[in-house]
Simulated scan of single mutants.
Amino acid sequence: MERVGRISRGLGQAWLTGLWFFLIAYFAVHAFQGDNSLSALKELEKQAVLLKAEADDVALQRERLTHRTELLGGKVVDPDILEEQVRVRLGFTHPDEVILLLK
């Protein structure tokens, strides 16, 4: 009878140990795979860096456009900006000029 008691206690402890191994393996697998894993976190960090760079480019473009708008819309219009706009809209050029319009 003693031997049966020791075996049953050993099975109970083995079952508990197996449960712990299963839980550890379960969480380890999900830590490295899936939507909320460490690799997904690295991808999100890369995407954040790219989006930050794009946001900086857009902010710089906005700053340039704001500056050009201020030059055209103030009480005194900048003659160079006005001439550039007239040439673009009406197609005027001097005979000795070559105009390259870049977008």
Rank of each mutant, 00 (worst) to 15 (best):
V86F: 03
G73A: 04
A53K: 10
L11R: 00
K75W: 02
T17P: 10
R87D: 13
S8P: 02
V29R: 09
R6I: 08
S39D: 15
Q33K: 14
G34D: 01
L19F: 02
Q47W: 04
Q85T: 13
H94M: 15
R87V: 04
G10A: 12
L60D: 13
A14S: 00
E63M: 13
L16N: 08
R6E: 07
P79Q: 01
D56W: 05
G12F: 00
D96I: 12
V86E: 04
S37M: 02
R68I: 12
H94R: 14
L11I: 00
E43L: 02
Q13I: 12
R6D: 10
L41N: 09
V77D: 02
L72K: 04
I81K: 08
K52N: 03
L72V: 08
D56N: 12
E63S: 14
I24T: 09
R9W: 01
R3G: 10
L38E: 04
R68A: 15
L38M: 12
L23E: 05
R68M: 15
L11M: 02
D80R: 07
F92Q: 01
V76M: 05
G74S: 04
V98A: 07
L41W: 10
L90W: 03
V4G: 07
S37R: 01
Q47T: 12
V86M: 00
L65K: 03
Y26D: 13
I7W: 02
V98Q: 09
E83V: 08
G34K: 01
T66C: 10
K42C: 06
L23H: 05
V98W: 06
K75G: 14
L102N: 05
R3M: 05
I7L: 13
K103L: 10
L60F: 08
F21P: 03
E84W: 10
R9M: 07
A59E: 11
L90H: 13
E2T: 13
G74K: 06
G10D: 11
V49N: 04
V86A: 06
F22A: 05
G74T: 03
R87K: 09
K103G: 09
L72Y: 01
D78A: 06
M1V: 14
